[in-house]
Design a protein around this nucleic acid. Structure first.
Lengths: 333, 333
DNA sequence: CTGAAAGCGCTAACAG
DNA sequence: CTGTTAGCGCTTTCAG
């Protein structure tokens, strides 16, 4: 009934617990005879022994857990990130705790410390810059996801520059010269991708204008769409870039509602890809980003910090991919 | 730098650690003078003391964590459940670990036990019945989500009977007499809602037929839609019931692709609601279910088990709600 | 009403 | 190459 302890393993193998412990932790300066080693290993499997992590944590201040912190569980943006993170964490023996974002990071870090959580991945799109720059002196390491802040190395990002290149090049190649981008002041992680987008636009001699949306939801996209398409405001604009998938879904619905035909009158392209993009009408052209890899690499980054190493900023090395579907076409002449 | 220990608190307050401990744990047979009590409480806040949960776990075999186990992180079905579960867990001082489903529940339970995870919530739609019935004799308690198995009390479900009543009544009131339901053999949790749906249909004298889909994804819905709508197979059917939202999204796209007009020629209604339902064309009529409450009540159920109590099956008491949108209308005469 | 003391299962420094 | 030992921070029984 009660779980097997290391003591029992040692007894069964006829050695001391310290031998078992050092074998399990691969202590480099342990030289063990193959015979006893085998006996210990045998005992471990025979008894189906599992180390008690609470005891280990008590001893080492090292609980073998990382936290994944999100501002909102219901926004599915991070599903793929967490999936990749979980898988990698599992491989290196860490468990993943999910938690809601508390703006007081110092307090959060202390809470985690007391729980045996060794580090945290932060989906901190809504945090003010000033809270984020002081990530270095928290009581546990934290890595910021998909957002860059000057002077901060504790970040892991996908390659928004490459993604923006893909999006702009696609539009420019189709002949678009005037693109509107949706923005959201509340989402600090947009700055990254919008900056990259605008910069690439300049080099392709594409003019960009900006419309402000009230968030990242489909509703925000819809409202913005109604506002823009409802008036006479489109002007020379022949394409719209949405920095988020749901924003594009809402925008598309607004286009439908106002009778603006996509892609005949207006092209729409979104950053990020998910199943839903294939099932809107028209299906959405998107730039697919390697979010699972982001999660995995963020775990590696965090683990390095936990092990007292000092990695530079992580940028995911898997290339973004353009998914051309029905929402983009050459502009009407 | 190092976290404050109970020792320091005791020292500061001029008492023994055991007093602090018993105060913190609200030991019933501790009578403490208000004066010392206050001194201790003061010391705790002054030093910003936080109990070391690893130490407590070691002592009590009780880590203050629960696991939320899903077959797949990227399917967003459980976002609201986990949100409600997390909130409730937080309120009672539990942390939530997320994990991927491993069909070997006994092994999982032992792994969790070694980690200080006190119990688990199981999104076990894909588990065979035989694995699920023996939930009672695992080394930690587990509660099955949204699925009922005869003889098993460790479940927490929303009220699919009420939800089905809502769906059928809506269709029947509109005048539909012949409804097709989408099913999926791989998803054992469908049986519950489909049974409820068919039973209510009988009492409203609505005929039901069944089409088998290959899963719960939009792609599955699309493929099924193409198969059904592409042929000459609709017959007398004037409405389709989808037991999952994404299935309906895909089905709608198939209707569009095959030129079947929704809701003029065919009504579509889905179980479960999410933002996307408002932004399809036409917008989807759905039955919204209280998934966050399900999460919260599942936590309560699990906590009762952890505390050695024996609750009966949990059924969420918040009523489902019909969200009438554009995808349902009276049948064409 | 409060203190002393043992020990949960494990790690790591040191001794043999 | 292996054993001894001293705790990590907390809970809990038993004495005062």
């Amino acid at each position: 009934m009660k779980p097997v302890t290391m003591r029992q393993v040692a007894q069964q193998a006829g050695v001391d617990v310290s031998v078992v412990s050092r074998l399990l932790n691969e202590d480099p300066r342990l030289s063990i005879s193959p015979a006893t080693r085998d006996r210990v290993l045998q005992a471990i499997t025979d008894l189906d022994y599992r180390p008690n992590l609470a005891a280990r944590a008590l001893r080492t201040n090292h609980g073998g857990m990382i936290a994944f912190v999100v501002p909102d569980f219901t926004s599915s943006v991070y599903a793929h990130v967490i999936s990749g993170a979980h898988q990698r964490a599992q491989e290196i023996g860490y468990a993943v705790v999910v938690d809601a974002l508390d703006p007081d990071l110092a307090r959060t870090a202390r809470r985690y410390r007391a729980r045996g959580i060794d580090g945290a991945l932060l989906a901190g799109a809504t945090l003010p810059d000033r809270d984020v720059v002081s990530l270095e002196d928290l009581s546990i390491p934290m890595v910021l996801l998909n957002r860059r802040v000057p002077g901060l190395t504790r970040t892991a990002c996908v390659d928004y520059a490459a993604a923006s290149r893909l999006a702009i090049d696609h539009l420019a190649d189709l002949g678009h010269r005037d693109v509107m981008v949706l923005s959201s002041p509340r989402n600090a992680d947009f700055t990254e991708r919008l900056k990259a987008f605008r910069s690439r636009a300049r080099s392709r001699r594409v003019t960009t204008s900006t419309a402000t949306a009230g968030g990242i939801s489909a509703q925000a996209g819809y409202d913005t769409g109604r506002r823009i398409l409802g008036g006479d405001g489109l002007g020379e604009v022949t394409a719209v870039f949405c920095p988020t998938l749901m924003l594009a879904v809402g925008f598309l619905a607004a286009a439908h509602a106002t009778g603006v035909r996509v892609p005949d009158e207006l092209s729409v392209i979104a950053m990020h890809d998910a199943e839903i993009a294939s099932f809107t009408t028209p299906a959405l052209t998107t730039v697919a980003l390697p979010m699972a890899e982001l999660g995995a690499l963020a775990i590696d980054h965090l683990r390095a910090l936990v092990d007292q190493r000092h990695p530079g900023p992580t940028v995911v090395d898997v290339a973004p991919r353009l998914e051309v579907r029905g929402s983009t076409a050459p502009p009407r002449t």
